[in-house]
């Protein structure tokens, strides 16, 4: 079994790097740590970066997970190969672009690009964001897939992910004690649905909500509370059609042995306990 140490980063291709940078700094309120013509790196916490926008196509994105230790990393690659999953080792230049010692890329059964990384950069400096959005760090990623059950099987059989809950066929997977770090939503096509950043508390979440409203950012869901994870959330549109969320609070599942995944119906009230509406088919 491959043990994921943590969700590490999201890389997003964009044709409009300047406006993506503006969104990340002004709207998300992240800290820009490095900027070139090709890419912009953003911090959200103790890590060197957790979000990268690079010059490219919006369809070209990936999610990075850290594997702890060289042996575990090699073993992970072997195990994926044994299960006939095509794994590509990153080149030196690609590793440098990700600020990691090694990485390997593969695709989940839905075709979503996943990267496993070894020794990603940490930062010794205090996180000091562009605006006081109260961000505590990259908290989770939501993906779309046409075959959620196959994706769920990959993460729970080959990797150390556990199912926390289901809403209809949507599957919420945890990698540590947080209710979920990864969620799969059934969809006709694969893709990145949302990138979620944790904020300090409900006050910061609501302050962000009014800030986004006044900045005329399109809010697609919330503010609300997820009956599954008990997270308070706010989901809004990013620069290239992907979504971003701010989340706070939420359940911690400390005792794996005693948690039973619960099945919620696929309906609006399973995605928000406050009654907020969404036009997105994934959330209603």
């Amino acid at each position: 079994m491959i043990a994921i140490d943590q969700l590490r980063y999201v890389r997003l291709g964009t044709r409009k790097l300047d406006s993506a940078v503006e969104f990340a700094e002004r709207i998300l309120g992240l800290q820009l740590v490095e900027r070139s013509d090709e890419a912009a790196y953003f911090r959200s916490d103790f890590r060197d970066h957790t979000l990268v926008f690079f010059a490219g196509e919006a369809a070209d994105w990936s999610v990075g997970f850290e594997i702890h230790g060289h042996d575990a990393f090699s073993a992970a690659l072997d195990e994926l190969s044994q299960h006939r999953i095509e794994v590509t080792r990153g080149t030196e230049a690609e590793c440098a672009a990700r600020k990691v010692r090694s990485f390997a890329a593969f695709r989940d059964p839905g075709g979503n690009a996943i990267e496993l990384v070894l020794r990603p950069l940490h930062s010794g400096w205090r996180y000091f964001p562009a605006r006081d959005a109260g961000i505590k760090g990259l908290a989770g990623v939501a993906l779309r897939a046409s075959n959620v059950s196959a994706c769920e099987e990959l993460w729970t059989k080959l990797f150390n992910a556990r199912v926390s809950d289901w809403v209809g066929d949507a599957s919420y997977l945890r990698l540590d004690q947080v209710h979920h770090r990864l969620a799969y939503h059934p969809s006709s096509a694969s893709g990145l649905l949302a990138i979620e950043f944790g904020v300090e508390d409900v006050d910061l979440l609501m302050q962000n909500s009014y800030f986004l409203q006044s900045s005329q950012v399109k809010i697609v869901h919330g503010p609300g509370r997820r009956p599954t994870s008990n997270q308070i959330f706010l989901t809004f549109a990013g620069p290239d059609g992907q979504l971003f969320s701010f989340v706070t609070e939420g359940d911690v599942i400390a005792d794996d042995a005693h948690h039973r995944p619960r099945q919620f119906p696929k309906e609006r009230s399973s995605f928000c306990a406050w009654g907020s509406e969404s036009q997105l088919s994934e959330f209603c």
Partner: peptide, 25 residues
């Protein structure tokens, strides 16, 4: 709870009750 405040916000707004301030703190 704060949840009740937010729930009522959606409940009342959907029924056409005029919101005049909030939700807030």
């Amino acid at each position: 709870s704060g949840d009740d405040v937010m729930r009522s916000h959606h409940f009342l707004r959907e029924r056409g009750v005029r919101m005049v301030f909030g939700p807030g703190r």
